[in-house]
Design a protein around this nucleic acid. Structure first.
Length: 321
DNA sequence: CCTATTTGACCGGG
DNA sequence: CCCGGTCAAATAGG
């Protein structure tokens, strides 16, 4: 019955054939999806191979595929930006608003941005910008955190008529690199009644990305050849925070009903992910159930989140030693 | 102590 | 006035 339906649960199909007006965006999404799949495939296949030149060849070929999609993406984006001049990052709402003084704590640290209180003790201005819905890309995935970027949660809201709250994330490097990328993550409503994660269907999340990453110069932004570098930059910069392990939407699950919510999400850089592959395999729930490669793929991606945008560098030292 | 998350208030748009 | 996005104080966790 559902022979074909569970085969495509990995990355959601965002292809809407009816949307003729924005083929480029649809094409972009599709290419990005393929890029993501190749990246996942690479993470699974390469560790399984023995270290010989064929493995190197396979790695090179996959990197070549990723490079192709990278360049295709940048070409499409070039065209998009030339076609639609309205495209800009934060056209959100530029009206300056003064917010009521909430707390008169004098010299607050520059916790979020430069709009702290004035030296003279003037009232802090609070620009409450609202996001524009324009440049969003939505995605349904069982692994809402495998996009390779580092996110920092800044809010969570209960959304009307939906059981699960929506979490709001912004790029960790927002201050340092003025990266304006944000995303929201919300667990989808259960497709069937009863427990959502009981064999049949993984818990799916709707992830919506807003804005482009300007921090780690995601490959979508510029098709360069040394995009690979920044994965290690990230890890050295912040010591690979795998801190977000499973904490993410757990309180929501607690607040709701039971739902042991066996998704574990780790956000960290690539080499560590690969290095922990064996451990991750141990953590897999009930290997008997992993019949199809799809399920295996899903679980691998659950525990070893990979990149949608950034190109993950395979740390061969971590792999083969 | 420092950093990330939580959480309730604030704010703008519809 | 309601809804949802954002802020920032409080809190948790290392």
């Amino acid at each position: 019955m559902k022979n074909s339906s569970n085969k495509r649960s990995l990355v959601a199909d965002q292809w809407h054939p009816s949307s003729v007006c924005c083929d480029h965006r649809a094409a972009l999404r599709e290419i990005a999806r393929g890029q993501s799949l190749v990246t996942q495939l690479r993470a699974i296949v390469l560790p399984a191979l023995h270290s010989d030149e064929r493995c190197d060849l396979a790695a090179q070929m996959m990197e070549g595929i990723l490079d192709c999609s990278r360049k295709a993406i940048s070409q499409l984006q070039l065209q998009l930006s030339s076609d639609s001049p309205r495209d800009d990052d934060d056209h959100v709402d530029d009206k300056r608003r003064v917010r009521k003084i909430v707390s008169s704590s004098s010299d607050d640290d520059d916790h979020c941005s430069s709009k702290a209180a004035d030296e003279n003790g003037n009232k802090p201005l609070r620009q409450h910008k609202r996001r524009r819905f324009g440049d969003s890309v939505s995605l349904e995935t069982p692994v809402p955190h495998y996009d390779g970027h580092q996110w920092r949660k800044y809010g969570q809201k209960h959304i009307n008529n939906s059981k699960h709250p929506r979490s709001y994330y912004r790029c960790t490097y927002r201050q340092e690199e003025k990266c304006k990328a944000t995303k929201t993550v919300q667990q989808r409503e259960d497709l069937h009644h009863g427990n959502s994660y009981n064999g049949d269907h993984p818990i799916m999340y709707t992830v919506v990305y807003y804005g482009q990453h300007t921090c780690c110069k995601g490959p979508a932004a510029l098709a360069d050849d040394h995009v690979v570098v920044e994965a290690s930059q990230i890890s050295t910069d912040s010591h690979c925070q795998s801190s977000s392990s499973s904490s993410d939407l757990q309180p929501a699950a607690h607040a709701g009903d039971s739902s042991q919510c066996s998704n574990i999400s780790v956000t960290c850089s690539s080499s560590v992910v690969v290095e922990d592959c064996n451990k991750l395999l141990d953590m897999l729930p009930a290997a008997d159930e992993l019949i199809t490669t799809d399920v295996l793929l899903f679980d691998m991606t659950t525990y070893a989140p990979l990149d949608l945008d950034i190109n993950w560098e395979m740390d061969t030292n971590a792999l083969w030693v």
